[in-house]
Simulated scan of single mutants.
Amino acid sequence: MSTGHVLLGLLSRGQQHGYDLKAGHDALFPSARPMAYGQVYAALTRLRDRGLIEEAAVERAGGPERTTYRLTPAGRDELEVWMSAAEHPPSEVNNPLATKLNVALVAGGPDEGALFLRRQRSAHTARMRDHTQTKRAADATLTQVLAADYALSHLDADVRWIDDALARLGEITREVTP
Protein backbone atom coordinates (compact mmCIF):
# COMPACT_ATOMS: atom_id res chain seq x y z
CA MET A 1 0.00 0.00 0.00
CA SER A 2 1.36 3.39 -0.95
CA THR A 3 0.82 6.16 1.58
CA GLY A 4 0.57 8.66 -1.24
CA HIS A 5 -2.14 6.71 -3.01
CA VAL A 6 -4.12 6.37 0.21
CA LEU A 7 -3.92 10.14 0.67
CA LEU A 8 -5.01 10.69 -2.93
CA GLY A 9 -7.98 8.42 -2.25
CA LEU A 10 -8.90 10.37 0.87
CA LEU A 11 -8.56 13.66 -1.01
CA SER A 12 -10.95 12.36 -3.67
CA ARG A 13 -13.67 13.01 -1.07
CA GLY A 14 -12.81 16.72 -1.06
CA GLN A 15 -10.34 19.25 0.28
CA GLN A 16 -8.67 18.35 3.56
CA HIS A 17 -5.68 19.28 5.64
CA GLY A 18 -3.06 16.93 7.05
CA TYR A 19 -4.78 16.43 10.39
CA ASP A 20 -8.03 15.39 8.67
CA LEU A 21 -6.14 13.05 6.33
CA LYS A 22 -4.42 11.32 9.26
CA ALA A 23 -7.74 10.98 11.08
CA GLY A 24 -9.39 9.68 7.90
CA HIS A 25 -6.66 7.08 7.42
CA ASP A 26 -6.83 5.90 11.01
CA ALA A 27 -10.64 5.62 10.85
CA LEU A 28 -10.66 3.87 7.46
CA PHE A 29 -7.94 1.37 8.46
CA PRO A 30 -8.59 0.67 12.15
CA SER A 31 -6.44 -2.47 12.21
CA ALA A 32 -3.45 -0.80 10.54
CA ARG A 33 -0.72 1.04 12.36
CA PRO A 34 -1.87 4.64 12.82
CA MET A 35 -0.24 6.98 10.35
CA ALA A 36 2.29 9.36 11.89
CA TYR A 37 1.86 13.06 11.22
CA GLY A 38 5.39 13.23 9.82
CA GLN A 39 4.50 10.48 7.36
CA VAL A 40 1.40 12.40 6.26
CA TYR A 41 3.19 15.68 5.70
CA ALA A 42 6.18 14.07 3.95
CA ALA A 43 3.79 12.27 1.58
CA LEU A 44 1.82 15.48 0.98
CA THR A 45 5.02 17.28 0.04
CA ARG A 46 5.95 14.53 -2.44
CA LEU A 47 2.45 14.55 -3.94
CA ARG A 48 2.50 18.34 -4.28
CA ASP A 49 5.97 18.28 -5.85
CA ARG A 50 4.70 15.75 -8.41
CA GLY A 51 1.69 17.95 -9.24
CA LEU A 52 -0.83 15.38 -7.94
CA ILE A 53 -2.24 17.70 -5.27
CA GLU A 54 -2.21 21.43 -4.72
CA GLU A 55 -2.74 23.81 -1.86
CA ALA A 56 -6.33 24.99 -1.76
CA ALA A 57 -6.07 27.35 1.21
CA VAL A 58 -3.83 28.32 4.11
CA GLU A 59 -5.58 29.23 7.36
CA ARG A 60 -4.31 30.54 10.65
CA ALA A 61 -6.78 30.37 13.51
CA GLY A 62 -4.91 31.04 16.73
CA GLY A 63 -2.28 28.39 16.09
CA PRO A 64 0.06 27.20 13.40
CA GLU A 65 -0.86 27.57 9.76
CA ARG A 66 -3.13 24.84 8.42
CA THR A 67 -2.83 24.09 4.73
CA THR A 68 -5.80 22.53 2.99
CA TYR A 69 -5.01 20.34 -0.02
CA ARG A 70 -7.03 19.25 -3.02
CA LEU A 71 -6.57 16.66 -5.73
CA THR A 72 -5.45 17.87 -9.15
CA PRO A 73 -6.63 16.26 -12.41
CA ALA A 74 -3.22 14.56 -12.63
CA GLY A 75 -3.74 13.28 -9.09
CA ARG A 76 -7.14 11.84 -10.00
CA ASP A 77 -5.57 10.15 -13.05
CA GLU A 78 -2.78 8.70 -10.91
CA LEU A 79 -5.32 7.40 -8.40
CA GLU A 80 -7.39 5.75 -11.13
CA VAL A 81 -4.33 4.05 -12.62
CA TRP A 82 -3.29 2.78 -9.17
CA MET A 83 -6.78 1.52 -8.32
CA SER A 84 -7.13 -0.31 -11.63
CA ALA A 85 -3.84 -2.22 -11.27
CA ALA A 86 -3.84 -5.62 -9.59
CA GLU A 87 -1.50 -6.08 -6.64
CA HIS A 88 0.94 -8.70 -7.81
CA PRO A 89 1.89 -11.28 -5.22
CA PRO A 90 5.62 -11.16 -4.55
CA SER A 91 7.72 -13.83 -6.22
CA GLU A 92 9.84 -14.12 -3.08
CA VAL A 93 8.33 -14.37 0.35
CA ASN A 94 10.07 -13.24 3.49
CA ASN A 95 9.22 -15.84 6.14
CA PRO A 96 10.59 -14.68 9.50
CA LEU A 97 9.31 -17.90 11.11
CA ALA A 98 11.44 -20.06 8.80
CA THR A 99 14.44 -17.83 9.38
CA LYS A 100 14.12 -18.06 13.15
CA LEU A 101 13.49 -21.81 12.99
CA ASN A 102 16.63 -22.37 10.93
CA VAL A 103 18.71 -20.27 13.33
CA ALA A 104 17.21 -22.12 16.32
CA LEU A 105 18.09 -25.45 14.70
CA VAL A 106 21.65 -24.39 13.83
CA ALA A 107 22.33 -22.76 17.21
CA GLY A 108 20.33 -25.02 19.54
CA GLY A 109 19.36 -28.19 17.72
CA PRO A 110 16.01 -29.87 17.18
CA ASP A 111 14.79 -29.40 20.76
CA GLU A 112 15.30 -25.64 20.50
CA GLY A 113 13.59 -25.61 17.09
CA ALA A 114 10.60 -27.50 18.42
CA LEU A 115 10.38 -25.21 21.45
CA PHE A 116 10.41 -22.14 19.19
CA LEU A 117 7.67 -23.58 16.98
CA ARG A 118 5.45 -24.44 19.96
CA ARG A 119 5.90 -20.99 21.48
CA GLN A 120 5.16 -19.38 18.12
CA ARG A 121 2.04 -21.49 17.65
CA SER A 122 0.82 -20.40 21.07
CA ALA A 123 1.46 -16.73 20.24
CA HIS A 124 -0.37 -17.10 16.92
CA THR A 125 -3.41 -18.79 18.45
CA ALA A 126 -3.61 -16.09 21.14
CA ARG A 127 -3.59 -13.41 18.43
CA MET A 128 -6.25 -15.35 16.52
CA ARG A 129 -8.46 -15.28 19.61
CA ASP A 130 -8.01 -11.48 19.80
CA HIS A 131 -9.04 -11.04 16.16
CA THR A 132 -12.00 -13.38 16.58
CA GLN A 133 -13.13 -11.37 19.58
CA THR A 134 -12.77 -8.14 17.59
CA LYS A 135 -14.88 -9.39 14.69
CA ARG A 136 -17.59 -10.75 17.00
CA ALA A 137 -17.94 -7.55 19.00
CA ALA A 138 -21.44 -6.12 18.83
CA ASP A 139 -20.12 -2.74 17.71
CA ALA A 140 -17.65 -4.10 15.11
CA THR A 141 -17.81 -2.30 11.79
CA LEU A 142 -17.62 -4.19 8.52
CA THR A 143 -14.17 -2.69 7.97
CA GLN A 144 -13.02 -4.12 11.31
CA VAL A 145 -14.57 -7.51 10.54
CA LEU A 146 -12.89 -7.70 7.14
CA ALA A 147 -9.55 -6.63 8.62
CA ALA A 148 -9.88 -9.31 11.31
CA ASP A 149 -10.79 -11.92 8.68
CA TYR A 150 -7.72 -10.97 6.66
CA ALA A 151 -5.46 -11.25 9.71
CA LEU A 152 -7.06 -14.55 10.73
CA SER A 153 -6.47 -16.03 7.28
CA HIS A 154 -2.80 -15.12 7.42
CA LEU A 155 -2.39 -16.34 10.98
CA ASP A 156 -4.14 -19.60 10.07
CA ALA A 157 -1.72 -20.11 7.19
CA ASP A 158 1.19 -19.55 9.58
CA VAL A 159 -0.24 -22.04 12.09
CA ARG A 160 -0.57 -24.64 9.32
CA TRP A 161 3.05 -23.93 8.33
CA ILE A 162 4.14 -24.30 11.98
CA ASP A 163 2.32 -27.63 12.27
CA ASP A 164 3.92 -28.84 9.04
CA ALA A 165 7.37 -27.72 10.23
CA LEU A 166 6.86 -29.54 13.54
CA ALA A 167 5.85 -32.71 11.70
CA ARG A 168 8.93 -32.47 9.47
CA LEU A 169 11.40 -31.19 12.08
CA GLY A 170 13.76 -34.14 11.63
CA GLU A 171 14.03 -33.55 7.89
CA ILE A 172 14.50 -29.80 8.33
CA THR A 173 17.17 -30.37 10.98
CA ARG A 174 19.15 -32.68 8.69
CA GLU A 175 18.86 -30.15 5.87
CA VAL A 176 20.05 -27.06 7.76
CA THR A 177 22.61 -28.47 10.19
CA PRO A 178 26.03 -29.72 9.16
Rank of each mutant, 00 (worst) to 15 (best):
M1E: 05
S2W: 04
G4D: 03
V6T: 08
G9M: 00
S12H: 03
G14I: 02
Q16F: 05
H17I: 05
L21Q: 02
G24W: 03
H25Y: 09
D26Q: 02
F29P: 06
A32S: 15
R33P: 11
M35K: 11
Y37H: 15
G38P: 08
V40Q: 04
A42T: 15
A43Y: 06
G51F: 01
G51P: 07
L52I: 04
V58K: 13
E59Q: 12
A61R: 15
A74C: 01
R76L: 00
R76P: 00
E78C: 02
A85K: 11
E87H: 12
V93A: 08
N102D: 13
N102W: 14
V103G: 09
V103Y: 15
G108V: 08
G108D: 06
P110V: 15
E112I: 14
Q120T: 12
A123R: 09
H124R: 14
T125M: 10
T125I: 09
A126M: 10
R127S: 10
R127T: 12
D130H: 15
D130C: 13
Q133P: 11
T134H: 15
K135P: 06
A148R: 01
Y150S: 09
A151T: 06
A151K: 03
S153P: 01
H154M: 06
I162G: 00
D164V: 07
L166M: 03
G170W: 04
I172K: 02
P178M: 01
